[in-house]
């Protein structure tokens, strides 16, 4: 049977769950990023994203992209994983945004397509935008791939993000999987009891009803979770353990991140 938009989206989330599990495997491997304290990883990669964003020169952004590739290889992240999960997706989305710049940016014409003129400056602007987004998203993906989700949360806590925000993030991550699993089971159960094709209007009604049931389930689940937290002593202020320790290797890593970021910002002015 042909799958509707909602069902296809739900299945997409289910695939994301599988990918999340794969990410944990990468995070447990021995590699450059994995050897650093999660706080250093988080801070350092954030710094490089900032440097990418602030750099105005193509060569500097390209150098940062090359740095991202080198970090990926040293952290045992497969280039094919990055290409399929990041680069192609970013190219598709950013390409749509960058495409008009090829024509509307004033400058030296390099080609004429009917009423439209492609300019050299337009090509440069579009290329810079795409490369910048590719590099920034690659650094962010490296953080996610090479760090267990729990460590990302702990690192955020160590960097003084409010406990409440981190708890919300952790619980969202935890329960989104459960709700997606419930939704896909609901779709499977519906399919098992449906013969033939439904009319589009019936499909829309069915999807709306499923969304409604899922919403009530999630409200009920959140109430239950809150009671379970209260039952174990939660009084509105989450207490967490944070037991990271910085080593000399971490300080070296932090220094290298700082140096790379500072040089990129200075050269890319």
């Amino acid at each position: 049977m042909k799958r509707g938009f909602l069902e296809a989206t739900t299945m997409g989330f289910a695939r994301a769950l599988t990918r999340a599990m794969l990410s944990e495997q990468i995070a447990r491997q021995r590699g450059l990023l994995q050897s650093l304290d999660p706080r250093v990883r988080l801070f350092g990669l954030f710094l490089l994203v900032l440097a990418v964003t602030l750099s105005r020169k193509m060569t500097v952004v390209a150098a940062l992209f090359a740095l991202a590739l080198a970090i990926a290889l040293l952290s045992r992240v497969r280039i094919a994983t990055l290409a399929t999960r990041v680069w192609l997706v970013v190219l598709a989305f950013t390409g749509v945004i960058a495409f008009p710049a090829i024509f509307v940016t004033p400058g030296h014409p390099v080609a004429v397509l009917g009423p439209l003129t492609i300019t050299e400056q337009g090509l440069r602007t579009a290329a810079l935008l795409i490369l910048r987004v590719e590099a920034a998203v690659t650094f962010t993906t490296l953080l996610v791939l090479c760090t267990q989700w729990t460590h990302v949360l702990k690192a955020l806590r160590a960097l003084r993000l409010p406990k409440e925000a981190i708890t919300m993030l952790a619980m969202t991550h935890r329960y989104v999987f459960l709700l997606v699993e419930t939704a896909s089971q609901m779709f499977e159960s519906r399919r098992s009891r449906t013969v033939g094709l439904l009319k589009p209007a019936e499909q829309r009604h069915m999807a709306a009803r499923t969304a409604g049931v899922l919403l009530s389930k999630s409200v009920s689940l959140s109430n239950e979770v809150y009671l379970a937290m209260q039952s174990r002593g939660f009084r509105g202020d989450v207490q967490v353990l944070s037991d990271f320790r910085l080593t000399m290797w971490d300080y070296c890593g932090l220094l290298l991140f700082l140096l790379a970021g500072a040089i990129a910002v200075w050269m890319g002015r």
Partner: peptide, 16 residues
């Protein structure tokens, strides 16, 4: 089970 790991889950009550 609302915590990110089993360890965090078991540690939740004593921490609170």
């Amino acid at each position: 089970l609302f915590n990110p790991t089993v360890f965090d889950e078991v540690a939740f009550a004593p921490l609170q």
